[in-house]
Design a binder for these strands. Structure first.
Lengths: 353, 353
DNA sequence: ATGAAAGCGCTAACAA
DNA sequence: TTGTTAGCGCTTTCAT
């Protein structure tokens, strides 16, 4: 029966607790209050047409017997779960380092919470996870899903499409065109901050590109190119696989080797920029006098560097909130905007360039 | 017993069904395969006593009708969810900055995943969250719970106790003594690294203490004191409320003001140490020549500083894994060790001292 | 080895 | 306004 051995399991060596009895059900409440199940259900769900005497009796009975609704039963009959899954598909190391992901989660949680939905975070960190998360999603555990950093040809995306689960992507993989998404205009943002860097009078401007296999990475490079036009020099671009500090260090070293005269750098993320700044300082370059450097994200990294980083503000929390709102609207039967939702990304100018 | 019996039985799809296709159920599979519901259920759950012909027919039928088990129904009858909740109760800002929390999540997820359990992350970020998470936990959504950074007098802890949900705490608030927990020996670890610092010949050793209202913070200070014995000087201890970079900067400035001769510092966390290093460098002190500094956590901070930080390795991922193992063992009816589980915390000696 | 049927706890449609 | 009852989809005896 329900959880009996669990209770015995952790009541400790000197157990003073009685064995946990069966959980009170709606029937216990009904009997205690002298009414029928139906009436109890009405009170629980706040419906009209309940006499105040009945309501009072039922409320008293509920606290007397310690009744807690069983959501599995409710979900079964209601065909919903009042929960939205947030699937994070990232390599383990990045998860801990990427500040965006935390902010997205927080933003989504706040928005879902306000609508009385439970956010359920699912981490995909292995093949096994992929399969289990797919099962979870197809098991009616969640009414909708927010996908963060989905990959191209993601099996989970396939499952979502197949079962028709309301979904919103944060950023969108190229092979997902039919589904709702929220994001930022990486290309325009990259162009804007590069132009700003150009305007400071730098003449040899390079870029540390990252994650070119994702649209965010590719678009940031494209925006950089847009801004430079004819002055774009492929030799001044160094690409690294991930948005991480360590890559920034090595990439900057490489760039310095290839072009010692470099006087401006656009790093594809703040973490990368922080690494690059380390390398620049080790090479004896002062910032921003010798080299101006700008980043992307406006994460906590940007405030830790010295001088602080000029960067593109990425509204991570807003993205989470917008994604949640999008899923919620789909749950209410609305159709999300076809082109997705793009949030503003103001340039934040600090001391590094 | 209410004595009301009613005939249950499959009434079939009603002829008035709109074109909307309903999800395939076990009954559709049974009909397709020409067997009974019971047999289908046996195949799904991999039980013995099923003929291979029946099994083949059922498997074919499952994929033909696109059957996916409905977990709400299964949970209802099985009285379990095959999911474990991980409750994180942190101020929003810390969540994004604290690398431990991510590692704990990853470790727990890996362990639960291996046991085929789903980890469900619940963030508590407001009053409303507290209430909803409590409801979630009491709603049979999760078979057990891992509590991270619970506070003293946490309402969620109350709920867990009340409903007797198998639980394990990562670290333990003082008012939780009956429940399982995993953690590290902060006091012994702090003592060990301070002794190591003393052994390098430093004579004026100070500490930047943090979070003294939590056991981790208080224990680290106690360990520092243990190591110094008679040489402990309260004037060389500066306390800050949180484990954060910015606090490290200001605390170090204060310490330098009070004792310019200071030549050794134990910071209560790597983030604090990183801040302190910034302040030391601004004050013209070289590390480790003028001042030796050590931290605590062995987080990503420790590798970002220059020189890299000597610190106490906190096995965050291991803590997550151990917590998961503890919950899982309770789920199997075992009693967790009374004193909790303490993980090793080796001192990692790098260049900062 | 398989089928029949009794519920798990709840909501909602229908009667009264 | 309230009671009665038919399921939601599934597992699990109990027969056979």
């Amino acid at each position: 029966m329900l959880g009996v051995k669990h209770t015995l399991g952790y009541s400790g060596p000197v157990s003073t607790d009685p064995p946990r009895q069966k959980r009170a059900t709606i029937i216990d409440v009904a009997r205690e209050a002298g009414v029928s199940r139906g009436t109890v259900s009405r009170v629980i769900n706040g419906e009209r047409y309940v006499s105040s005497e009945a309501e009072a009796a039922i409320k008293a009975a509920i606290s007397k017997v310690g009744y807690r609704p069983n959501v599995a039963a409710r979900n079964l009959v209601m065909q919903r779960s009042q929960a939205v899954a947030l699937v994070v598909h990232e390599p383990a190391s990045l998860f801990a380092e990427d500040p965006n992901i935390g902010a997205i989660m927080l933003g989504a949680n706040a928005a879902l919470s306000a609508a009385d939905y439970q956010m359920v975070l699912l981490i995909v960190d292995s093949e096994r996870d992929t399969e289990r998360v797919s099962r979870y999603l197809s098991g009616s555990y969640a009414d909708g899903v927010i996908m963060v950093s989905a990959r191209t040809h993601d099996p989970i995306t396939r499952v979502i499409e197949k079962i028709g689960l309301p979904a919103t992507f944060v950023g969108h993989p190229p092979d997902v065109t039919q589904m709702a998404f929220v994001g930022i205009d990486n290309r325009a943002s990259a162009r804007a901050i590069t132009e700003r860097l150009v305007a400071t009078g730098r003449s040899r401007i390079g870029m540390i590109a990252a994650a070119l296999d994702r649209d965010s990475g590719a678009d940031r490079l494209a925006g950089f190119r847009d801004a430079l036009g004819d002055r774009f020099d492929a030799n001044l671009v160094e690409a690294v696989p991930l948005y991480e500090f360590a890559s920034g260090v090595t990439a900057m070293q490489e760039l310095l080797r290839r072009e010692p005269q470099i006087d401006g750098v656009f790093a594809a993320s703040d973490a990368v920029a922080a690494g690059a700044m380390n390398a620049l300082r080790s090479a004896g370059r002062s910032i921003p006098q010798d080299v101006g450097i700008v980043g992307f994200d406006d994460s906590t990294w940007a405030l830790r560097t010295k001088p602080q980083l000029s960067t593109v503000h990425q509204p991570a929390q807003g993205l989470g909130a917008a994604a949640a709102a999008s899923v919620l609207s789909q749950l209410h039967g609305e159709t999300p905007p076809a082109g997705g939702v793009l949030l503003d990304t103001p340039v934040v100018w600090r001391g590094s360039a």
